[in-house]
Simulated scan of single mutants.
Amino acid sequence: MLNLKSFGSNPTPLDAVIIDLDGTMVDTLGDFAEALNRMLGDLELPPIAAQHIERMVGKGSEHLLRSVLNHVLEHMGKAPTAIEIEALYAHAWPSYQRHYLAINGHYARVYPGVEAGLQALRHAGLRLACLTNKPTSFALPLLRAKGLEGYFEQVFGGDSFDKKKPDPLPLLKTCEALQTAPARTLMVGDSSNDAQAARAAGCPVVLVTYGYNHGLPAQAVDADGYVASLELLLA
């Protein structure tokens, strides 16, 4: 069994691992930039640079779209109201969904060490689930396109439950689906959303150091450990 002694916490045997998707297993920033800029073009709005998008990723597509719309309008010299953002969002969401599904995975890459790490976790007898704030209709095709879907017993998206990370509900529901106790189920992610959800659910948590985390260093987030590659979880 995997335990957390290598991360400096009390040795706790684990039965399962829940793994985030964007910024943890797959670098999807290119997909986001392409789909969002196609959407902005449909709305006759100027494009947004990838470095701005990176800080907005992680809280679900709805939050991402609203953040992008607000950013673009502010940089046009406007001060959009919530009502104006929602009016634009009504047109933005179907456009974004269409474009994202069309290019899903085309501009994304699997991070080094991910497949080797997943293979090692499975070989160690651990049950695996993917839990992301990305809509399930986006997450499943991406995992399939990148050859990662077969590693997971369960895949849950941001629309699978009533709440998204950083709320603990998705982790608790995923543990329930895996039939594992939260204290024996490791959360692996790249951001404070993953860490906060894990802490509230009673799951241990390890963060990768190469992800998004809203543009801030992962090491600034309270977690049980930090790794530069999924391969190092069992090192």
Rank of each mutant, 00 (worst) to 15 (best):
D20L: 01
L21Q: 04
D22S: 02
D22P: 02
G23F: 04
T24I: 08
M25T: 01
V26D: 01
T28Y: 09
T28L: 08
L29C: 05
G30P: 07
D31C: 08
A33V: 02
R38K: 15
M39K: 07
L40V: 07
G41T: 10
D42H: 13
E44R: 14
L45E: 05
P47Y: 08
A49C: 07
A50N: 03
Q51R: 12
H52F: 09
H52C: 03
M56I: 02
M56W: 03
M56C: 03
V57F: 05
V57N: 02
V57E: 01
G60H: 02
E62M: 05
H63M: 06
H63W: 05
L64V: 06
L64Y: 10
L65A: 08
L65I: 15
S67H: 08
S67L: 03
V68A: 09
V68W: 01
N70S: 07
N70Q: 06
H71F: 13
H71Q: 02
V72L: 07
L73Q: 13
E74Q: 12
H75M: 03
H75G: 00
M76K: 13
A79P: 00
P80D: 00
T81Y: 00
E84C: 03
E84A: 11
E84L: 01
E84R: 04
I85C: 02
I85D: 01
I85V: 12
A87N: 10
A87C: 02
Y89K: 03
Y89M: 03
A90W: 01
A90H: 08
A90Y: 01
H91E: 12
A92S: 12
A92Q: 11
A92E: 10
W93V: 11
W93Q: 13
W93S: 11
P94H: 11
P94K: 09
P94L: 09
P94F: 10
S95W: 01
Y96L: 05
Q97H: 15
Q97L: 14
R98Q: 13
R98S: 12
R98L: 10
Y100E: 06
Y100I: 06
Y100V: 06
Y100K: 07
A102F: 06
I103Y: 07
I103L: 11
N104D: 07
N104E: 04
G105P: 14
G105M: 09
G105K: 12
G105C: 10
H106S: 12
H106I: 00
A108Q: 10
A108K: 09
R109G: 05
R109H: 14
V110P: 06
V110R: 08
Y111W: 12
P112Y: 02
P112L: 12
P112R: 12
P112V: 14
V114W: 06
E115W: 08
E115M: 14
A116P: 00
A116G: 13
A116W: 00
L118D: 10
L118I: 07
Q119V: 10
A120S: 15
H123Y: 00
A129C: 12
C130D: 03
T132W: 04
T132E: 04
T132L: 09
K134N: 09
P135V: 07
P135F: 14
S137P: 01
F138D: 06
F138L: 10
A139E: 10
L140E: 14
L142E: 08
R144C: 08
A145V: 04
A145N: 12
K146F: 05
K146C: 04
G150E: 08
G150Y: 07
Y151K: 09
